[in-house]
Nucleic acid binder design. Sequence first.
DNA 1: TAGATTGTTAATCGATTAACAATC
DNA 2: TAGATTGTTAATCGATTAACAATC
Lengths: 231, 231
Amino acid sequence: MPNRDISKSVIKRLPVYLRILDNLIRRDVEIISSKELSLESGFTAEQIRKDLAYFGAFGTRGTGYNTAYLREKILKIIGLDKKTNIIVIGAGHLGTALTRYNASKNPYVNIVAVFDKDPHLIGQKINQIEVLPVEKLHDVIKRHMIKVAIIAVPANEAQEAVDGIVKQGITAILNFAPAKLHVPEGVHVHNADLTIELQSLIYYCSAEEERLSRLRHETGEPKSSKMLSLD
Amino acid sequence: MPNRDISKSVIKRLPVYLRILDNLIRRDVEIISSKELSLESGFTAEQIRKDLAYFGAFGTRGTGYNTAYLREKILKIIGLDKKTNIIVIGAGHLGTALTRYNASKNPYVNIVAVFDKDPHLIGQKINQIEVLPVEKLHDVIKRHMIKVAIIAVPANEAQEAVDGIVKQGITAILNFAPAKLHVPEGVHVHNADLTIELQSLIYYCSAEEERLSRLRHETGEPKSSKMLSLD
DNA sequence: TAGATTGTTAATCGATTAACAATC
DNA sequence: TAGATTGTTAATCGATTAACAATC
């Protein structure tokens, strides 16, 4: 009943709160206000309170939030209260780096195996995690009840890979391939598109310069106190 | 004048259009309608037309968009019409993978160098790109007029690294460190937070199950035709 | 009680969608 | 001209912000 399709933006902020709480607890901070959380997260205090209120009332009026308690609650909300088994598809450079990264930095997930179709890569170990042939997909997904996969294959192989794992029961995909994936209803895809992030960032550099130059042209005022006066 | 602070969401979609156009041109498709672009991108045709209209009128009524022409325009808008020089901070596993990835997959950027403070890594080459000590930051940034950096250092070193490069003139940062970065006005940060993407994805798995179980409990109807009837 | 901060409702803002006139 | 599709304005929707009553 409380859970009537909460927006993606809210869900994306929950792990941010979780990380901040983890850090606070490590520093033995026991109570935190939404205002302080705002400072740490960059989101407004009102937004934080509203986000949490979608799921319940976890704070104490006049005081703030107990860090350990709120952490527990957020873990339960996201579904991280028990380790999630996941697999990685693609044991190339990126797949290997992502596997290592999550194995060492993400305590809430457990990478069961990495899959590849290149015979040269099969049998290798990445931080103790085995690289298996795609033929083993079915077995591993069934045995470990896996629902979540990371896709780290080339763009032209991504759709095929996704079709395969979706057929085996995967319902959540973190996609690093620069390709639009088509999935049936009920399967969730998050795109982590490094190229797009970088390219859209570049817009802001050039835009900055262009804005300045356009400004100079339109106002007809060539001397700007903000620029080096080389002329 | 046409460029009155266009929203982040619009800017994030431009590289998607670019990629689709690159693919279409490779397949010798010369004309594309917003409706077809919608199919390839997952965004609505109206949204695509509106996005492009922020920057000008690039299509032909009754016909559609010329792929090569639109590509050129988008390149200019983003600022990818000439290669952008960038640097990577951090030559660990992730930094190495990101460097390799961009060097081979992103034709619009040129990674000039990778920086690290670990003496063991200095002098190594990643796809022909040298790993340099942080002392060389100043020189390289100045010589290659670098404005964009990728941060791939551990979370606890990220702020320090950012302070350093911002002082040297970096104005755009793609941050892979799981930390909130504080930067002065005018510096743009895009967070590419792999952990957050993965964790928020997990919400949707558990939410799905919970929704089902909540449904079962609330309706008091234990037999569901969608479940295996093991009982 | 006074001070503080949450939880929640109302107001505002911005982005997406719908509609349609312009025009190829 | 008829058919198609863009470019643009208006309507809707959703998310963020502001305000404040509840309450510790």
